[in-house]
């Protein structure tokens, strides 16, 4: 099963609504609470990143028997130095993002800690694509 969601940059009111829908869906199909939580925490951080940094983005969720794969693809400024962005505490977030309780440079490390497979591709001036997979059972 595949699902697609759209996210608008700067729309803080709706930030997290996709994560909320995905959470309900994963619970409904009987994924364990631990895996649901780790998946939606990673997704929520990534969704907030689109709202905080990009102009717009799409979220593709693909469900298979043993795993969920989520691809977040945005049009935005891109990340010039991914290694640096992965370091805890490094942030380029605006004051508005910080007011929302984010922007402390924990987003990407949090996504990494809550995903089994993570790939980040970014092109400066074009956008960023984050793809992560979580397995429903221990590998």
């Amino acid at each position: 099963m595949d699902f697609t969601y759209h996210v608008e940059g700067g729309d803080f009111t709706n930030a997290g609504s996709t994560s909320s829908q995905v959470k309900r869906m994963l619970k409904k199909i009987g994924v364990s609470p631990e895996i649901v939580k780790k998946t939606v925490v990673a997704l929520y951080e990534a969704e907030v990143n689109i709202v905080a940094h990009a102009y717009r983005g799409d979220i593709f969720v693909s469900l298979e028997d043993d795993r969920v794969t989520i691809v977040l693809s945005d049009e935005g400024p891109g990340i010039p130095d991914i290694d640096r962005a992965m370091q805890k505490g490094y942030s380029t977030a605006s004051p508005k993002v910080r007011e929302m309780g984010f922007g402390a440079g924990m987003g990407l490390p949090n996504i990494k800690n809550n995903s089994d497979i993570l790939n980040i591709k970014s092109e400066v001036g074009k956008g960023t694509t984050i793809e992560f997979t979580n397995f429903f059972f221990a590998q």
Binding site: F12, G16, K23, P33, V40, V41, Y44, F102
Partner: peptide
């Protein structure tokens, strides 16, 4: 002390 939609969303995501 953070009182906005995102603090509730964070609780939702974190169970």
């Amino acid at each position: 002390g953070l009182c906005n939609l995102q603090s509730v969303r964070t609780c939702e995501m974190s169970d």
